[in-house]
């Protein structure tokens, strides 16, 4: 069950936004299970200290096996294409060779929580998807305005410190709904 983030305590450092972290694992018979039934709420947080507290007890993405995802979204935004904050937007997708997931995820979420993207209210959340071959990092934003998405890309390149020639692809959620490729973030069938 969802629990809202506690107020930052005395001496804690508040974040610009509250966030919630979710976990999902594909079940054996996933075809019949709705996407959001697999989404497990882990915790919400409102300060830097609360974040590190939670982060230190959850397993690092690179240490997990199978078909699993962490979703870190602003509180109030469900990690689904249909959410009002997401439905007109899209995501940057970065494919990562095995072994890079934990470091890149940490760099990405630190940049997001620390408001390093400088695109106003645009950022919705981030996802790390552990898969059998490459892992997939994605950063979701509200609109598909090209000035904004280019700025997000530039910041991603700077903060992720990716190997040269890493491919980055932008995909609008309406496209994802149409083609049903990439992993599904929806109940839409």
């Amino acid at each position: 069950p969802f629990r809202p983030a506690p107020k930052p305590g005395e001496g804690e450092h508040p974040l610009q936004y509250n966030y919630a972290i979710w976990f999902s694992r594909r079940s054996q018979n996933s075809k019949s299970v709705q996407y959001d039934k697999n989404l497990k709420f882990i915790a919400s947080f409102a300060s830097v200290e609360q974040f590190w507290n939670i982060y230190s007890y959850i397993v690092r993405p690179g240490d997990m096996s199978g078909h699993v995802d962490y979703h870190l979204f602003k509180e109030g935004i469900r990690p689904m294409w249909e959410d009002d904050a997401n439905k007109h937007g899209g995501k940057w997708i970065i494919r990562l060779k095995k072994g890079l997931a934990s470091r890149c995820w940490e760099n990405l979420i630190m940049a997001m929580l620390g408001e390093q993207f400088m695109v106003g209210e645009e950022i919705c959340g981030a996802v790390i998807s552990i898969r059998y071959q490459d892992d997939i990092l994605s950063l979701w934003n509200r609109s598909n305005d090209s000035t904004i998405t280019s700025r997000i890309r530039d910041t991603l390149q700077r903060v992720l410190n990716l190997p040269p020639h890493t491919i980055m692809e932008y995909k609008e959620h309406t496209e994802s709904i149409k083609d049903q490729t990439s992993f599904r973030n929806t109940n839409f069938v």
């Binding site: 974040l15 200290e49 590190w52 507290n53 630190m110 929580l113 620390g114 408001e115 390093q116 903060v159």
Partner: peptide, 21 residues
């Protein structure tokens, strides 16, 4: 209003504070 911004090194520094455990 003013945005609350933290760079990577500040976040790493706060990771080691007693309140973060």
């Amino acid at each position: 209003g003013t945005r609350i911004v933290y760079d990577r090194s500040r976040l790493m520094q706060l990771r080691n504070s007693p309140l973060a455990r």
